[in-house]
Design a protein around this nucleic acid. Sequence first.
DNA 1: TTTTTTGTTGCACGCGTGTGCAAACGTTGC
DNA 2: GCAACGTTTGCACACGCGTGCAACAAAAAA
Lengths: 337, 337
Amino acid sequence: MPSNVEQDSITADDVAELAGVSRWTVSRAFKKDASISAKSRKKVLEAATELGYAPDLLAASLASDKSNLVALLVDDFANPHKLVMMERLTRILRKNGWDTLLVNTLDENDASAALMNASQRRVDAAVLIGVNFNDQELAAALGARRVKKLIVFARSSENPDTISICCDDRSAMAEITGHVIRKGYRRPLFLAGPQTQSAHLMRKETFVRLWHEANGDRPDFISVGSYDPALAYQAVADRLRNSTADARPDVVVCENDALAMGAVDAIRYELGLKVPQDIAVTGFDDVPQAASPHYLLTTYRQPISAMAEGLVQVLKGESDTTDLCRFSGQLIIRDSA
Amino acid sequence: MPSNVEQDSITADDVAELAGVSRWTVSRAFKKDASISAKSRKKVLEAATELGYAPDLLAASLASDKSNLVALLVDDFANPHKLVMMERLTRILRKNGWDTLLVNTLDENDASAALMNASQRRVDAAVLIGVNFNDQELAAALGARRVKKLIVFARSSENPDTISICCDDRSAMAEITGHVIRKGYRRPLFLAGPQTQSAHLMRKETFVRLWHEANGDRPDFISVGSYDPALAYQAVADRLRNSTADARPDVVVCENDALAMGAVDAIRYELGLKVPQDIAVTGFDDVPQAASPHYLLTTYRQPISAMAEGLVQVLKGESDTTDLCRFSGQLIIRDSA
DNA sequence: TTTTTTGTTGCACGCGTGTGCAAACGTTGC
DNA sequence: GCAACGTTTGCACACGCGTGCAACAAAAAA
């Protein structure tokens, strides 16, 4: 009965006493590759199990200056692909010993406040998987030693101080462009996301350039303020509502699936046209919904898991950081184009 | 040039020296409602700004036994509603001073390992927004003082030790049921999610009961292993593929939108039938996609933001914990039923 | 002016762990 | 049996800040 007497959290000292060793030996027992005999470790671990002890990660972080914490900054919750990325990243990070701090930067136009916040938790790295990140501010944050490592995930960055882990956008768009050309489409419209950020995706530019090289003309494009299917829907509807059949595009190439889904819906429900017969659509990311019979998007699947493993390498400091922007994914051809 | 000399992180001591006060006064300057004169606080804050100082939350947590950290346990990343919940929760928590630890429990069939993990970070609370949570294990985790507070969000729990913040499922389903009945549907099929958890939603039971009270018969139902549109698609397709027109249901009442979207797609693309003319569909959650012209789901919107504010009250300890399961949302009537 | 009250500040101690070093231990080879 | 070596263990110190209390100053009351 009195066994449960307001027992303050058990510490390594308690385990040490029970195991008959010093507190530091307890510490070693929980550390891989530590200098400790198998016998001692076994004793300690048994005592720890008996007491229900687990090392305090806060104290460990404070003492070691290594938190095993990664901040994930997200500002783009309308894009279903974020759910996929979060799932993969948290899973793979956790498997490798890192916990994830999810930071919503939706309300600030800069990520610096969020970075500051993360730095106060001594995160080992901040991973950006959003849109509204200003390279200058990021650099400033890094310069002030706010965070040890700044990683831009699934997006390239021109900033030399930030590490970027992403697909080779050029070859990815080349695959899409090639497919669009092979399919015989002649009047593409590019649907892009936010254009104001210095770290924005280069897919539009790449597509325009590749198309120009192949066909001589420069495709038209429109852009929306965020990767939100609803915004894409409006933009496409507004753009195409009054265009005649022979003036309208025959394919809408979208920066990602979030936009592509809005585009498909607009074409179908706002314009009453068929995809792909009247207007084809391509996406990027291969979100789960893209495979639904309703969309059947032709899209490009990034190797998120491999990229996440690359992130782990970076965190471990075992990375050359050179090939991190050369991941290559896979063109997924479905019915939409 | 030598200004950037390997400057180890500035601490409160540095600020204290520059401001000409003691370290503890610095500490007070950053604490609301602390006993400190306006003059001192100003001096300290200016010095802090000049040095770029920000309190170390790790050390603060260790010293105060309050981390301002909340663990968010998620095991259900196929459900787009999770994205909404994460956005709202992180936003509102952050606004109130809490950071969010995102824990993916997808790989374990129990949440206890994740809870253990969170407890090692001394989280102030663990918030569950998933499915596969076993009440017994949760209770055990609580009993072992693993986490201070265990909160089940948007889901009711029978466990007396866990705090549940959710809609009044009974009245919510009553609204949906009423709508379905008023619309004149006669042969409902309930599409439910996982049924094995002790903390699962009571929507199926509630619907069946209410329908039985009103019509005398007990509706049929099927269930799928997770809230995944693709699984719902398969389940509905398999169930209805060989049923004759007069034997098939005229409305599919779904436990949430994730399932409803799969149901709509199956009805349209697998069975070639029309929604709602041949078979109507209702959902729950009002995910963003539910409003798209493709689905136009009749559904029920939970007051997520208000519930998140309720969570903040719980964290602050300012809650009666009685009305936390009595939030009421709003029936959203669209074309699908 | 003296006393009381109120407001403000400084300090010893603790939070639970990691690091680097030195001492103790055990082993091998001659 | 001794030296030399590798392995294992203990320890002082540090990590950066909060709590509670005591000391202090300033303002209000006597």
